[in-house]
Lab assay of single mutants.
Amino acid sequence: KLPPGWEKRMSRSSGRVYYFNHITNASQWERPSGNSSSG
């Protein structure tokens, strides 16, 4: 399961899957890690 705020999306241009955070408006190709504590 993804960390809070993150969701899986697909890029229309490349067709690749990326991850988008609707809370911080951040996007990245790598899967966000939800196990590590923020610090």
Rank of each mutant, 00 (worst) to 15 (best):
K1R: 12
K1L: 13
K1G: 13
K1W: 14
L2V: 04
L2W: 03
P3S: 03
P3V: 02
P3L: 04
P3F: 02
P3H: 02
P4L: 08
P4N: 08
G5S: 03
G5N: 06
G5R: 01
G5T: 01
G5E: 05
G5P: 08
W6R: 00
W6A: 00
W6F: 01
E7F: 06
E7Q: 08
E7M: 07
E7C: 12
K8Y: 07
K8H: 05
K8E: 11
K8M: 15
R9I: 06
R9K: 08
R9S: 02
R9L: 06
R9W: 03
R9F: 05
M10Y: 15
M10I: 15
M10Q: 09
M10L: 14
S11F: 09
S11V: 11
S11I: 12
S11A: 10
R12V: 13
R12E: 10
S13F: 11
S13M: 09
S14E: 07
G15F: 04
G15M: 05
G15L: 05
R16K: 10
R16Y: 05
V17G: 02
V17S: 06
Y18N: 00
Y18L: 02
Y18I: 03
Y18R: 02
Y18W: 06
Y19Q: 00
Y19H: 00
Y19L: 00
Y19P: 01
Y19A: 00
F20N: 01
F20M: 02
F20Q: 01
F20G: 00
N21E: 01
N21G: 01
N21K: 02
N21F: 05
N21A: 02
H22Q: 09
H22D: 03
H22R: 14
I23A: 07
I23E: 09
I23P: 01
I23M: 08
I23N: 09
T24A: 03
N25A: 07
N25E: 06
A26I: 14
A26D: 08
S27T: 13
S27H: 11
S27A: 14
S27Y: 15
Q28D: 02
Q28C: 11
Q28S: 08
Q28G: 02
Q28I: 05
W29S: 05
W29I: 06
W29N: 04
E30L: 06
E30P: 04
E30W: 09
E30F: 06
R31M: 10
R31G: 03
R31E: 09
R31Q: 07
R31Y: 13
P32D: 00
P32G: 01
P32M: 01
P32K: 01
P32S: 01
P32W: 02
P32Q: 01
G34W: 15
G34Q: 11
G34Y: 14
N35S: 12
N35G: 11
N35W: 07
N35F: 12
N35T: 13
N35L: 13
S36I: 11
S36M: 12
S36W: 08
S36G: 13
S36C: 14
S37R: 09
S37A: 13
S37E: 11
S37H: 10
S37Y: 08
S37I: 11
S38D: 12
S38Q: 10
S38C: 15
S38W: 09
S38P: 12
S38F: 10
G39T: 11
G39L: 10
